Structure formats: structure tokens, C-alpha cells
Simulated scan of single mutants.
Amino acid sequence: MTERDIFFVANEVNELGGVGRWQAQMARLLAERGHRVTVVGIAPANHPMDLGEPPFKTVTLYARRPPGRPKARRVLGPVDPAVRRHETHMRSAAGRLSELFRDARPGAMIIVSQVWAMEWVALADTAGHAVIGMTHESFETARKSSRFERVKKYYKDVDRLLALTQEDADRWVVEGMNNMGFMPNPLPIVPDTPSPRTEKVVASIGRLSHEKGVDLLLDAWAEAAPKQPGWTLRIYGRGEAEAELRRQCAELGLEDSVDFAGQTDDVPGALRASSLFVQSSRGEGFPLVLLEAMACGVPCVAFDCAPGVREIVTHDEDGLLARPGNTSELARHLVRLMSDEQLRDAMGDQALRSVQRFDPDVITRRWEDLFDFLER
């Protein structure tokens, strides 16, 4: 194995959320295998997570988040002073990236985790090192956002652009991105003991936001709960939609069977205290929490809202998938598993087996194979 200098460049070093957790895990995994890893953030995190004492170096380019790129006034065009000041600040910060990259040993790898960060990498001198871009969301989610055109603009010339699934990679190829590959996320946790699946608890874990669809979940629970009395839907998370979700819960008469449990720092513990996991998102990339639930032997019920979901959960084998937004179908799947202990156990055991294909060692070796390939 070749020991390398590896740079992760992202919007932030330690932002709470899926990309931040993935980045910290991969940086740690690669550092533990002898690589010299540096995580570079463009700006400080809005919601920082505690990295402890990581085995990698961290650098943040700005002391506070820089303003967005100003639109040039039509009369002045590119000579608009506001535009020129912004570009000067960007080039100054990109100069710090150039210094880091020039100090690296030959064969270094630059992994750009988010396209906003790529705007700075594009201005930097990458010193001949390979650049790997990443899109941590489904193609469909990107297509509906401003990131779609930015991915095509800023990642078109990188050495490799990685989607989360082959299906998403194929759709980017149709858009003219011929440098595509794909790389799944690694299993974020390897619990010592799985859930005994003895508690009548359905767990939901995620930010309380429109994208995560907890409003849809409450509608589904209103159909499912009366058919399986004694079960509790335990919702872990905080977010801007919490007050509205609590009102919806009360209006649906679900307060006796729904527990808003707040943010948890112990995801494995929350999963081991449940017998089912449910995800009702309107959109996803490659959801880590599905991997975590399966690693705890908890069968999942989810909306089939992205290729990453069906890449993780195999319908009718280790979990159940409903058509996106179809709350009645989601409710039927919940009732099916809530009412059948034998089926829950069979799917939970299969989930524990099938999720091993995302074992951290397996995924880390895939990354190292990619590094070797790009260096040839």
C-alpha cells in the first residue's frame, strides 16, 4: 500500500450532517491506514460537531463565512468593484490551498466533497495531484437545485467525479460528464450487539425539516397506529419544522403514540431500543442512518426516493420500500412488520448480513484502489 498525502476539501471541516460525518469517518479511516490526511474547510461550521482529537490535520480558510458571489451590475459587467473584490478574496484564500497542495508529496489526492468548495479548488494550483470531485446527493435532488449547473461547470475537468450509486453516475454521463465513477458510503458504525427487537418502538432519526418528510410519516402513522395498539413512534431530531410537526401530531390525535425524543448523541442506543426503523424522506443521497439501522439488525421501512435508498435496502428481503410520498403504502408496510414478529426477526437478521458489503475496510480499500488507478 502506498502511503499518500490526502486532502479533503469541503464547505466546512466539521458541519453536523451526513457529509460532515462521512468526511470525518473517511479521513479517520485513511489516517489509520498510514496516510497523511488534511481536512480543509472553506468556512467555519454553522452547527459544528465535536471531532475529539482526530488523527488528521484540519484547516479553515475563512474566519467567518464569506458572502455569496455578487451579480455584476449590467453597466459595469466584470469590472464591477464588488465583483472584483469578491474574486480577489477568493483568489487569496485559494492561494492558501495552493501552498498546501505544493507542499504535498507526489501522488497526493485531493478529494472535493462539495461543489461550493470546488469553486476555490478551481482557482488553486493543484500541483499536478489528482482531483476527485464528489456529489453527495442523488442526481434527481441535484437536478432540482442550483448545484446541478455548478456540478457540470466546476467538476467537468476533474480526474474523477464520484456519485453515490451506479444509477446516479449513469445519469450524469448522459449530461456529458464522462469522468464519472461511483463510491458508496461506508457503514458508519459497527455495533457490538444488535437490537433484540423486543420493544414495540418504531424509530425515526433525522433533522426535522421538509426534506426529511416527517409530516408524511405522521400521516402514515395515523393510519398504522390504530391497527397495532401499544406501539410507539419515537422521533429523534431537531429542526425548523418541529413546532409544526408537534401541531400536526396533536391534530391527528397521535400524542399518546408519538414520542418526540429530541436530538440523540447515541444513535446505536436509540436503534437498539427499537424494533423497526422508518425513513420518510422526500429526497436522499446515500442515507447513513439506513446503514446504521441495518447494522443494528433493525429492519427498515422507507420511501424509495433515491437510488441510494434501494442500493441499501432490498425490498422484501431486508426491509420494505414504498413509493415516494405514498403514505398509505408506507403505513401498510409498517403494519406488516409491526404485526409479524417472525418476519421482523428474519428481515432484521438479513439486514445485519447484507449491510456488511459496506464494511469500512471494504470501502477504504476501494478508495485506495481508485488512488492507485488515478496515479498510473
Results as ranks from 00 to 15, higher is better:
Arg336Ala: 14
Val151Phe: 14
Met338Gly: 09
Ala243Thr: 15
Pro191Leu: 05
Leu254Gly: 09
Val173Met: 11
Leu321Met: 11
Arg69Cys: 03
Gly237Gln: 11
Met347Ile: 10
Glu375Tyr: 04
Leu76Ile: 07
Met177Val: 07
Arg332Asn: 15
Pro287Asp: 03
Asn178Thr: 12
Ala124Lys: 00
Leu337Glu: 07
Val115Ile: 09
Gly230Pro: 08
Thr60Pro: 01
Thr2Pro: 15
Pro70Thr: 02
Gln25His: 04
Arg365Tyr: 06
Val75Pro: 03
Leu162Asp: 01
Pro268Asp: 06
Thr58Ser: 01
Val267Phe: 14
Ser138Trp: 13
Lys200Gln: 15
Tyr155Met: 08
Leu217Cys: 11
Ala302His: 05
Arg365Ala: 15
Glu32Leu: 13
Pro81Ile: 08
Pro78His: 05
Gly253Gln: 11
Asp266Lys: 03
Ala295Trp: 14
Pro106Cys: 05
Pro70Val: 02
Thr264His: 13
Ala82Ser: 10
Asp266Ser: 12
Asp256Arg: 15
Leu271Trp: 12
Glu32Met: 08
Leu218Asp: 08
Met180Thr: 05
Ala24Glu: 12
Leu320Arg: 15
Ala142Phe: 11
Arg91Met: 09
Thr135Phe: 12
Ser92Ile: 06
Pro324Thr: 14
Ala322Ile: 12
Gly237Cys: 12
Glu119Trp: 10
Arg365Trp: 05
